[in-house]
Design a protein around this nucleic acid. Structure first.
Length: 571
RNA sequence: CGGAGUGUAGCGCAGCCUGGUAGCGCACCUGCUUUGGGAGCAGGGGGUCGAAGGUUCGAAUCCUUUCACUCCGACCA
């Protein structure tokens, strides 16, 4: 392609609302254009990169035995009612009616549609396993779209769904997809980590996320420095937290009873009051849990004084759709005493959970559910269905697998794989006949890659202060040839010859033949970030051109006759 | 949805407080010069100042309403 014939509107300045390098550079280099909150147009360069990334995804999935399909974008609300997600998915689901007042939604994900497709055409275990996928625009009416392609409302996603006769085969496919996705992200030149994850709104048992490591990532992930354990903070686990080390006889011991603690309502104050490490205190965190059909309830979570509540875990522990903050007034109205809450002598209708690390622990202090009093010498029961993992792993905690130190890092979620089980096949009545002629629901897996988000993730990880640095398989072109002075016929003709030779050999070349000065074209080359550049300029008089590697901006002088081979070695 | 903020040319901004009919830089168009690091000179085009209503002889500016967008929280590929 010739630059002079392309539409590549590069800009010196970015809109002031762009913060992330990926957002700024994709806009400035003319890859995308903003049209509204979370909505983007892909311009020619952006479309080329998107297509190449999409191609990598498709090649690997096809090689892994998956079948590409393309489902309707507009989906009948009826299907969503059948699965019970029409209400549950919430406002993110864009709903509308057609002229006959029939309700539809714009597909944010396609479990229902895919199960519907399969239940109509697959009847026997002999047709299993089956893995169908599509690479298609999705729409989610995000509460707060931001960061350019990172979190748009409309985005390109690969979503795959696998159907199996049993759990074991579904797990086999799950591992197979972990390997396949890893190959995709490796080909795209990404530094990523596969981590344990929470299953979220999709539902199901086990799930893993593919996180591209980048400081600007929206997710906090916990990684072990000793082994390859990694998990989203929402699902991370640790070895039980050890008590502080004490000298002989210094460990706290206390008799049971109530203690007058006027005005001592925070963990810090309590620790100071008793001269105790917060490890021995029990913190009560109150939340309001929201359930289906507008039901709500106040729930208390009890954790160690030196721990923090992890909301996703807490939410799962009580089976709620969502947890929200609750005010002091609401607590008092429910018969609770803020600042002095404990799990003994609670009003009957208040439900609670205790962090599992506190199970059977003794010599603890917690609120007495009475103004100005705490209970001391508390022992947590050994049994009951009130225990759950509730706390956020902290930096410096120990790995449950190897005992190594755990650290936080930031990641961009670019892929997520789920072991779904029968979460959708059962309510939607999607069954097959097994070897014994018995009707059974499909055991499913589901898999997703944020294809358009990948473009942002690639730039987050591969850029410098001058612009984008595309990786080999994500770049819109393999090579850019810059004609230093287009008015110089010798230079122009040499560049044209190279352009023809390399294009004929299958290299995707962008020829910058614009009537601009050298510096201007160089800046654009650096901003756009095509991996390789050739400058045809002054050194042509000595029979040489300059080869530039965008990553690091290394330059080498190469003889004109040799440069094509040099390029072919590198693409 | 809760809190904060911004809407003036394609982009970045000034003008608003103290009303007098819109300006700067970049980009764009024409011509000449220039051609190894975002050129110079000369000329030119483009904005119902987010929208609606009000106050006033007169509103980008003051008042009211509304919409959009951005930022901080809960959501997610």
């Amino acid at each position: 392609m010739r630059f002079s014939k392309m539409l590549i509107p590069t800009a010196k300045e970015a809109p002031s609302d762009a913060v992330l390098p990926s957002h700024i550079y994709l806009l400035r280099a003319g890859f995308i254009q903003s049209v509204g909150a979370g909505l983007y147009n892909f311009l020619p360069l952006g479309k080329r990169s998107l297509d190449r990334v999409r191609q990598v995804v498709k090649e690997e999935l096809d090689a892994a035995g998956c079948l590409e399909v393309d489902l309707a974008f507009v989906t009948p609300a009826e299907l969503w009612r059948e699965s019970g997600r029409f209400e549950k998915y919430g406002k993110e689901l864009l709903r509308f009616t057609d002229r006959k007042e029939n309700e539809f939604v714009l597909g944010p994900t396609h479990e229902e549609m895919m199960v519907n497709l399969v239940r109509q055409s697959v009847k026997s275990y002999k047709q299993l396993p089956l893995h169908l996928y599509q690479i298609k625009t999705k729409f989610r009416d995000e509460i707060r779209p931001r960061f350019g392609l990172m979190r748009g409302r409309e985005f390109l996603m690969e979503d795959g769904y696998s159907f199996h006769k049993d759990e074991a085969d579904m797990k086999r496919e799950f591992d197979h997809m972990e390997a396949t996705y890893s190959r995709i992200f490796t080909r795209l030149g990404l530094d990523f980590r596969v981590v344990e994850a929470d299953s979220g709104a999709i539902g199901g048992s086990g799930s893993k996320e593919f996180m591209v490591l980048a400081d600007s990532g929206e997710d906090t992930i916990v990684v072990c420095e000793g082994c390859d354990y990694g998990a989203n903070i929402e699902a991370a686990v640790r070895a039980p937290k050890a008590a502080p080390e004490y000298e002989e006889g210094e460990a706290p011991e206390m008799s049971e009873g109530e203690f007058h603690t006027p005005g001592v309502t925070t963990i810090d104050a309590l620790a100071e009051f008793f001269h105790l490490d917060p490890h021995h205190l029990i913190k009560a965190v109150a939340k309001k849990a929201l359930y289906d059909e507008g039901k709500e309830a106040i729930v208390l979570f009890f954790i160690r004084g030196n721990d923090e509540l992890e909301e996703t875990k807490a939410c799962n522990a009580v089976g709620a759709n969502e947890l929200i903050d609750v005010s002091e007034e609401e607590l008092r109205a429910a018969g609770l005493t803020p600042g002095y809450m404990g799990f003994e002598n609670l009003p009957e209708e208040i439900s609670y959970r205790i962090d599992k690390e506190l199970r059977g622990e003794s010599d603890l202090i917690m609120g007495a559910n009475r103004e100005d009093y705490h209970r001391i010498g508390v022992t947590v029961p050994e049994f009951g269905d009130i225990f759950a993992d509730l706390v956020a792993v902290q930096e410096g905690d120990c790995c449950a697998r190897c005992g190594g130190r755990l650290h936080y890092t930031k990641g961009i979620e670019v892929g997520h794989i789920f072991q779904l089980g029968t979460r959708y096949s059962e309510p939607l009545g999607a069954t097959f006949l097994d070897e014994n002629g018995k009707s059974r629901p499909f055991v499913m897996g589901t898999y997703g890659i944020g294809v358009s988000r990948l473009l942002a993730a690639i730039i987050e990880q591969h850029h410098d202060d001058r612009g984008c640095i595309w990786t080999r398989e994500s770049a819109p072109f393999d090579l850019e040839i810059i004609v230093s002075n287009i008015a110089n016929d010798t230079e122009r003709e040499a560049a044209e010859a190279l352009y023809r030779t390399l294009s004929a050999k299958g290299v995707a070349v962008l020829l910058d033949d614009r009537k601009e000065r050298f510096g201007f074209k160089m800046k654009d080359f650096e901003l756009i970030g095509i991996p390789l550049g050739i400058v045809v300029g002054k050194k042509l008089a000595e029979g040489q051109v300059e080869l530039i590697v965008r990553d690091g901006l290394e330059r080498l002088d190469v003889a004109v006759e040799a440069v094509a081979d040099e390029v072919l070695k590198r693409v």
